[in-house]
Design a protein around this nucleic acid. Structure first.
Lengths: 238, 238
DNA sequence: TGTATTTTTCGTGTCGACATGAAAAATATT
DNA sequence: AATATTTTTCATGTCGACACGAAAAATACA
């Protein structure tokens, strides 16, 4: 098994303080893209060789990731990539739906012209990813799109929780789409467009309605996948 | 100025792994109780002497605290205790109110008998703190009371955000009550009692209504304090 | 042969020390 | 005297090494 990309073997003497950031960003991305399998152990000593730095900055990056729930630190034992617990899904869906609604409402109420530009930009990027049939990009841009909406709502508490949920959702979506390798995931372009229009029009009730509808649709899709009967030997004669 | 309590000068060789936990717990408590003033710098070397341990575990504790927003790490400069930004208050109140409602609703829907016992226990503790006129205890037990309700709601995402908000609220309440040294803060005993009853009766609409009412009252009180006219020389003849 | 006990392995938790860069102090300049 | 520049200070960022403890391997025992 080949290791995920080694980010910098060139020992060009990193900027002071960039060590933790590098490890943090790299690992976070790999975790969210499921390149690090949920539940798999993370060995500090390995990372030492991989990133070409001492254990201290690696350790600090892991602690930060642990604070965000992306890894799980087992005392005196190796840290592991946060498992995806399917039993937590109902909680997750509930929180996700609420945050979709609250952030979209607030965005409709508080958005500035600059916010609209940023949101439209990301919506455009999403459309391009859809056109290019690039599932990876679609997932990532979709996340950024909703995060930008939350940002326009101007509530850092919601932003933080929502970002965490969206990240967790990214892992779920990866999990979900990985089984439809050639199939394109459903396109949210229309709903996104409606959402942006409601925000731009400062129409809070409409924003709330569309957010709820959007959340419901996503939840339904993931649920459908999870509960799908994937037994391949169900029909054989015994 | 005397330093806050030195927790362990006895060098009884702490258990492995307890270092970070000690520093984390101690600092967190001191921050929430405003014994460490918001915005004041935290010197790692000082803590080294104070806790009698190397900088590594202290550093890791600070990183954890930073992840929870309790301290702010300035790159290449000293970490500071998270400032209380009064401009963030509207956001804070909005999120707090929503979380009060959501967690209380969920508690009414999902509580077990054991949850009720735990909640009643804390309610009892709050009553005792009120009777003893111990403001510190009141603030702390009040926080635990609502946290227990959230726990009964069985949604870890809400629990996490709510705990953070309650912690931040603890600092605000401390700030608030510190100016009424001998005055007792308003007693929420009745509202708490109503809340527990709604949860016990699994009455979601009632739980929601009381939670909202409770939140509104707290918000109004803090707002009243903040906007209070504290000019002491307003009436002098000039 | 299967289970209990000891030994070994090896990764984490902690330590002391050095390097770096930002703030403060000291000096030079107008 | 006031400002600009250099020097010094010192806390942070990073490093390599040791210690402890848990899992795994090896051994003893039934």
């Amino acid at each position: 098994m080949d290791k995920p990309t080694i980010p910098s073997l060139e020992q060009t003497k990193r900027r002071r303080g960039s060590g933790v950031a590098t490890v943090y960003d790299t690992l976070k991305r790999e975790i969210l893209e499921l390149r690090l399998r949920p539940g798999s152990p993370i060995d500090e000593t390995n990372l030492t060789e991989r990133f070409g730095m001492s254990r201290t900055p690696i350790r600090e990056a892991l602690i930060k990731l642990s604070g965000e729930g992306l890894v799980l630190a087992l005392p005196n034992r190796s840290t592991i990539v946060a498992p995806i617990d399917l039993l937590d899904l109902p909680q997750f869906f509930d929180a996700l739906t609420l945050m979709y609604r609250v952030t979209t409402r607030l965005a409709a109420a508080n958005r500035t012209a600059a916010d609209i530009v940023a949101i439209r930009d990301l919506q455009q990027g999403y459309a391009e990813a859809v056109a290019a049939r690039d599932v990876s990009d679609m997932i990532e841009v979709n996340r950024d799109f909703h995060s930008a909406i939350a940002l326009a709502g101007r509530n850092r508490y919601y932003c933080e929780l929502f970002d965490r949920l969206l990240d967790e959702g990214r892992r779920l979506l990866r999990f979900y789409y990985s089984s439809f390798n050639d199939d394109l995931p459903p396109l949210f372009l229309d709903e996104h467009e409606e959402m942006v229009r409601a925000i731009e029009a400062s129409d809070v009730p409409a924003a709330d309605r569309i957010a709820k509808q959007h959340a419901d649709q996503i939840v339904r899709q993931i649920q459908a996948y999870i509960t799908a009967d994937r037994r391949e030997n169900g029909d054989i004669t015994l």
